[in-house]
Computed example of a mutant assay.
Amino acid sequence: MSSEVSAGSSTQEFVTRIGGRIRTLRKQRGWSVQRLAESGGISRRMLTDIELGRANPSLATVDRVARALDTDFAALSLPDHDAADEQVEGTLVWQAPDGSQALLLGATRSPRAELWRWTLAPGGRYDAEPDRAGAQEVHHVLSGRLTLALEDGPHVLACGQSAVIASDQRYAYRNDGNEPAVFVRVVSGA
C-alpha cells in the first residue's frame, strides 16, 4: 500500500505506533539507523524522526521501511488486540483537512492482503505510488462515485460497482462528485 500524504496527514497515534515498532525491529536486528535508512530508501534524518514519532511519513515510506525490515505495512500499523477483542473499528492511517480518510480494517499475513475503508470528500484526491510488481487492488463503492485515475485513463465507479486494478503503476483516487465517496479497498501482493 502506498501513497503520499500531501493531501492530508497520518494520525499521531499511527505515527507513534509505527515509529516504536520500526525502532524495536531495527534494534532486534542489530541494525543502525543508517543501515535501515539505506535499505528503506529514505534519509537517516527522516527515519530518526519516524522512530521518534515526529515525522509524518507517506504511506509509501512506511511500506518501504516495512519491506526492508522483512515485515509488512499492516504489521507496523495495526494495533495489538487480544483474541477476545473481536470488534475492531479500524486504524485511522490517513486523513485530510477536508474530512477524507483511510481506515485500515485488517490484514492477513500469508498471503498478504489488507482490507481498507476509504472516504473521499467531494473534490478529494489521493495520489499513490506504484506497489511491487504484480500487486493488485479490488475496489467496491459503497456510496458516491469513485474515479480511479490510472495510466490508461480514468475509470469511474458508481455506488455498487467494483473494479480490480494493477497497483504496480502510478494511480490516484478522486472524488469528482458532490457527495462523499465511500469505498472498500482490498490490497494483495503489495
Rank of each mutant, 00 (worst) to 15 (best):
A66K: 01
R125E: 12
S58Q: 03
N178P: 14
T11K: 00
T71D: 01
W118Q: 03
D72F: 03
E179V: 09
R145E: 12
G153Q: 06
Y173V: 02
R117L: 09
L148D: 01
T11H: 01
R185N: 15
D168R: 00
D63Q: 11
G53V: 04
H155A: 15
A60T: 07
A84F: 11
Q136K: 11
V156I: 13
L142Y: 05
L78K: 06
Q12T: 10
S77R: 00
A149Q: 11
Q28W: 08
G8A: 00
A181D: 02
G177D: 10
Y126Q: 08
G106C: 03
L92C: 04
L104P: 00
R64S: 14
G189D: 01
E151C: 07
L146I: 06
L103Q: 07
G123F: 03
D85G: 08
S2K: 10
R45T: 13
L59A: 01
V33D: 07
S3E: 07
A181S: 09
P111D: 08
E179Y: 08
G144P: 07
W118R: 02
Q12R: 14
N56P: 06
F14E: 00
P122T: 10
G90Y: 00
V33G: 11
R174M: 13
L25K: 06
A149H: 12
S9C: 10
L115W: 10
M1N: 01
D80E: 14
G106S: 10
P180S: 05
G53S: 04
R54F: 11
E137R: 11
L142K: 08
A7E: 15
R174E: 12
R67Q: 12
Y173P: 02
D63L: 07
G99A: 06
V186M: 09
S77Q: 00
Q161P: 00
L47D: 05
T11L: 02
R112S: 12
A60C: 04
L104F: 02
P57R: 00
A96L: 03
V88K: 14
P97G: 08
F183T: 02
L36R: 04
T91V: 09
E137N: 06
A128F: 04
V88Y: 15
W118K: 03
R17Y: 01
R112L: 10
